[in-house]
């Protein structure tokens, strides 16, 4: 568990400043009809840490993801990534700048093979340009490099046996793994995972948790949305809580879970119930 003092600068409160933020959002709002789905006054995501974004259904977590990655347009708001203005930028350019996301409903490209899915995740392949694609020598070398990198990642995610299969043939959990591995092909600076554990077979949970922790070791910042409280508690360095579009609390996981505002907004009457599907033993094994 990281020491909180190396994450937050000053008092720990909703929207507090971070020592080394990678993403800073200001006044981001998005309304659907009269309903303000997202209303974030200020949010900073710490660099090189694992940050969990939690909140009840309809809190605006996924909408905030969509806004930050350019998949949806906000009514108001600005945000910077690595000091660069990112508001109003098209999603593919956001990804090229090193901010790559996955989706809540897995978007494995079903009728492409697993290895082709992976290759597609790489950036700057000259063969992806229309005119250069005609001339194999212009891209064969890069393609070779990409394939080697993809094979390393597939091995790490234990998908190497499925290399030549169509992604459609994978199980739900394997697709989640593939989507995460594919997102890593571009060596992103910030990975945004939308419910990485949803629908994942418990047998795969441990390896997914390890992969997420492994990302931090390679210097990648992780921001993830999750409902599983055990997972949040055990792998995140920082937790941001949203409710009704607003940031209602943030802080280190053990502190946040005890925060009355969080218990009120999220845990509610279930404050004393076990809200994790991942068994505590599984999580502890990984530590």
């Amino acid at each position: 568990m990281a020491n909180t003092s190396d994450i937050a600068k000053g008092a720990i409160e909703p929207g507090c400043a971070k020592v080394d933020p990678i993403l800073i959002a200001d006044n981001v709002t998005r309304s659907f009809g009269g309903n303000k789905a997202v209303d974030v006054a200020h949010l900073e995501i710490p660099r090189g840490k694992i940050t969990a974004l939690i909140g009840p259904n309809g809190a605006g977590k996924t909408t905030l993801f969509n806004l930050l990655t350019g998949f949806d347009k906000p009514n108001t708001g600005t945000w910077t990534f690595e000091g660069k203005q990112l508001a109003g930028i098209a999603p593919h350019r956001v990804a090229r700048w090193g901010m790559v996301r996955t989706f809540q409903l897995t978007k494995a490209l079903s009728l492409l093979t697993v290895i082709d899915n992976m290759r597609l995740g790489a950036q700057d392949n000259p063969g992806e340009s229309f005119f250069k694609s005609f001339v194999r020598p212009l891209w064969a070398k890069k393609e070779q490099e990409i394939t080697e990198r993809a094979d390393v990642l597939l091995k790490r995610f234990k998908l190497d046996a499925k290399r030549e299969d169509y992604a459609a043939a994978l199980s739900g959990g394997q697709r989640k793994l593939l989507e995460m591995a594919r997102a890593l092909m571009s060596d992103p600076k910030l990975v945004m995972l939308d419910e990485p554990m949803a629908g994942v077979n418990p047998a795969l949970t441990q390896s997914l948790l390890d992969h997420i922790k492994g990302l931090k070791e390679t210097g990648t910042t992780v921001l993830f949305v999750e409902h599983d409280m055990h997972m949040v508690r055990h792998i995140s360095d920082w937790v941001v809580v949203m409710a009704e579009g607003k940031i209602v609390a943030e802080g280190p996981p053990d502190v946040v879970m005890k925060n009355p505002a969080v218990i009120d907004a999220y845990l509610g009457a279930h404050a004393n119930d076990d809200l994790g599907t991942v068994s505590i033993d599984t999580v502890k094994e990984g530590n």
């Binding site: 999603p91 978007k107 597609l120 992806e128 694609s133 571009s186």
Partner: peptide, 29 residues
């Protein structure tokens, strides 16, 4: 045949499957 077997063709097939996924991987769909 040359085009569809190239990385360009692969990107197109990705778009056929799910264009948002391809967008999230940094391609100008």
């Amino acid at each position: 045949v040359v085009l569809t077997r190239s990385p360009w063709g692969r990107t197109l097939k990705g778009i056929r499957e799910d264009e948002d996924a391809v967008r999230s991987l940094g391609k100008n769909v």
